[in-house]
Design a binder for these strands. Structure first.
Lengths: 225, 225
DNA sequence: TTAAATTTGTATCATTTGTTACAATTTAAG
DNA sequence: CTTAAATTGTAACAAATGATACAAATTTAA
């Protein structure tokens, strides 16, 4: 339990909340601590999501299983993080995925009702929750921006301009492999496009070091007419 | 003002809140009513987003303007809806876009601080806000799912299976034009792929009427191995 | 009802991207 | 330091998609 409190204090959701206050919140309200062995299922797909599950220790995977029993999508979530923060509210508040323990896990479970009470009880907690949700949605939105560019060159232009923060020289924050996956393209295609953009005098690149040469040209790529 | 109250009562954010309670909330707290003429700017790009703007009447457009003064992205928002609900919280709480009135507009403006107080004052309002945020993020997430499929055929398979809700026959909910834009592909390419999928015995399609013929085959398209 | 506007079907050719394979380089592990 | 693993650079060919254009079908408005 002490361990749990310390873990929570270090998590984003309880950021800025004192140890005393956290203990008070947890004591005066209902919550459960559940442990899961490797392979156990934390949440079934399509099950109503009426509780916040906070991963204290371990990691889980989220899989979408379709009628044929095949896995569609996999996501890994590590502690200390809340699961399915997105699906606790909204019209369709059901788990879109099956959540399985990758290893032995410890979790803290707070019912939706309790959580709403906690929000009214503690402004900081509410604001943290809103911040986390908002950041999550912002990440999704920003990813959508890049994906909605049609060509790899456009995606790269948008990504690099965004990453540059106004600077001309900077380092890539992902490997080409990761970036290709993020864009939903193949790694050789991405690598080739980087080489082409260098040939065309838009950028210079060597491993992770990037220099923007023709900013105007890059900007033109991401302009919608 | 009476008009404002009625509009708000019919909006998602104040859904389930009684007229009396709404008047109480608005009376006991600070808010502003601002009107904008066509062409006026409601919010500058990069400006700190520290207030919720609710569009009571009219419509606005959101545009991303880059260094070169060119428009990157356009989104239209109609009343009665809150603007920038996503950017009120989170680390990067600045407007990512410039918001301009498409026509004469009426707005209700509530500061972030006041909004947080309202949330503590009224559980229903908080839950509505969380629901709206969650639904928004769910839509983004679901769009990302389709976009992350590489081929148009995969995107279509995912989209159609999702839309079918288990039924074999149903109607498309968008025109091919809209669907192509949603996927980020060209309309002829989408149309061609639909025709090919029909040739290959996966579906039958005539205008908006769709019949899923080979569900197993469609499922296989969206499975990640 | 008729004309205009929108949506859909389809074809051709250019361009982009995927697939596969392999070598060079860098990083991590022992 | 040495070897293995991961990352990056490229190449050749196949496949998918874009761009453009035009006709047919359908819907909307007058």
């Amino acid at each position: 339990m002490n361990n749990t409190v310390n873990t929570l204090l270090g998590s984003e959701l309880f950021n800025g909340i004192s140890e005393k206050e956290l203990i008070r919140l947890l004591d005066t309200n209902n919550y459960k601590e559940n442990n899961y062995k490797k392979g156990e299922i934390l949440a079934q797909q399509h099950e109503v999501c009426n509780r916040l599950i906070i991963l204290i220790k371990g990691s889980v995977r989220a899989e979408m299983i379709n009628d044929g029993g095949k896995v569609i999508k996999v996501e890994d979530i590590k502690s200390p993080n809340p699961l399915a923060i997105m699906f606790l509210f909204g019209k369709k508040n059901r788990f879109p995925v099956e959540v399985t323990a990758n290893e032995d896990c410890e979790t803290l479970i707070i019912s939706k009702k309790t959580l709403l009470s906690l929000f009214q009880d503690n402004k900081q907690l509410l604001q943290n929750f809103l911040d986390i949700s908002s950041d999550y949605a912002t990440r999704l939105s920003s990813k959508l921006t890049f994906l909605s560019f049609k060509t790899i060159r456009q995606k790269l232009a948008g990504y690099l301009l965004d990453l540059s923060m106004g600077e001309s020289m900077f380092d890539l924050d992902r490997s080409q492999n990761d970036l290709a996956e993020y864009f939903g393209v193949t790694r050789p295609s991405l690598s080739r496009e980087l080489a082409k953009m260098q040939q065309d005098g838009l950028i210079e690149i060597s491993r992770k070091k990037v220099t923007l040469i023709d900013k105007e040209g890059l900007l033109n790529l991401v302009v919608r007419v």
